[in-house]
Amino acid sequence: MNQILIVEDEIRLAAFLQKGLRKKGYITTVVEDGQQAVEMASSKQFNLMLLDLGLPVKDGLTVLQELRNQGKKLPIIIMTARSDEREKTEAIAYGADDYLTKPFPFQDLLSRIEEYLCLVTG
């Protein structure tokens, strides 16, 4: 069963994502800040991470850098309200697999999740 780590400090959005993904059969864990994200991703086996950039304690780009520096290869999809092209380019350069600008249709996110999980699991 695929496990997804949702890193989102906006409680309502995190709950919406968790509910929708669980309905599709995914196991989800939600954390609300960047430090928790690094700790969870480092200590548990997740198949994919959904990562907001605007997080308390550590921002999403820092989380992304730390995980990639640790050699974590799990797909990471950035979900952010930031639409700055420079930040998108920076996130991809740091190792993000994809970048979605909020608000986005849930189906778009689901399609990308399925695509990356297919690549990982074969």
Results as ranks from 00 to 15, higher is better:
Ala91Met: 12
Gln36Met: 12
Val63Thr: 15
Phe46Ile: 05
Val7Phe: 04
Leu5His: 13
Ile113Arg: 06
Gln65Gly: 08
Gln70Trp: 06
Lys19Trp: 09
Ala96Ile: 09
Val38Leu: 12
Tyr99His: 01
Glu114Tyr: 00
Leu100Ser: 04
Ile92Lys: 02
Val31Arg: 04
Leu61Gln: 14
Lys44Phe: 02
Gln107Tyr: 07
Tyr94Ala: 12
Ala96His: 08
Gln70Cys: 09
Ser111Val: 11
Phe104Asn: 11
Glu87Cys: 03
Leu21Cys: 07
Val31Tyr: 04
Asp9Leu: 08
Lys88Ala: 11
Lys58Ile: 04
Thr28Cys: 14
Gly122Asn: 13
Val63Ser: 12
Ser111Phe: 12
Gln45Pro: 00
Tyr26Met: 01
Lys88Arg: 15
Leu67Cys: 11
Gly60Val: 10
Tyr26Gly: 05
Asp108Asn: 02
Asp9Phe: 04
Ser83Arg: 09
Leu51Cys: 10
Asp33Trp: 07
Gln18Ile: 10
Ile6Met: 02
Lys24Trp: 00
Asp33Thr: 02
Thr29Leu: 14
Gly60Phe: 09
Ser42Thr: 14
Gly54Ile: 06
Ile6Trp: 00
Leu64Met: 12
Leu50Asp: 12
Asp84Trp: 04
Asn69Ala: 12
Tyr26Glu: 08
Leu51Pro: 15
Leu21Met: 12
Asn2Phe: 01
Leu55Cys: 07
Thr80Gly: 11
Asp98Phe: 02
Ile4Tyr: 02
Thr29Ser: 10
Asp108Pro: 00
Leu110His: 02
Asn2Leu: 03
Val31Thr: 04
Glu85Arg: 06
Gln18Lys: 11
Arg12His: 13
Ser83Met: 02
Tyr94Phe: 13
Asp59Phe: 06
Leu55His: 03
Pro105Glu: 14
Gln45Glu: 12
Arg112Val: 01
Lys44Thr: 03
Ala37Gly: 09
Phe106His: 04
Asp108Phe: 00
Val30Asn: 08
Ser42Leu: 00
Lys19Pro: 00
Leu61Lys: 13
Asp84Glu: 15
Thr62Met: 11
Pro103Asp: 03
Leu17Gly: 00
Leu64Asp: 08
Asp84Tyr: 10
Leu64Tyr: 10
Glu90Leu: 14
Arg82Asp: 14
Tyr99Trp: 02
Gly122Phe: 03
Val120Ser: 11
Leu110Asn: 03
Arg22Ile: 06
Lys58Val: 03
Asp98Arg: 00
Lys58Arg: 14
Arg12Leu: 13
Cys118Arg: 06
Leu64His: 09
Ile113Asp: 05
Ala81Gly: 15
Val30Ser: 12
Leu64Gly: 11
Thr101Asn: 10
Ile4Asn: 00
Lys58Leu: 15
Thr101Pro: 11
Ala96Asn: 07
Thr89Leu: 13
Lys72Ile: 10
Val30His: 08
Leu13Tyr: 09
Gly20Met: 01
Asp108Lys: 11
Ile76Phe: 08
Tyr116Leu: 04
Arg82Ala: 04
Asp33Met: 07
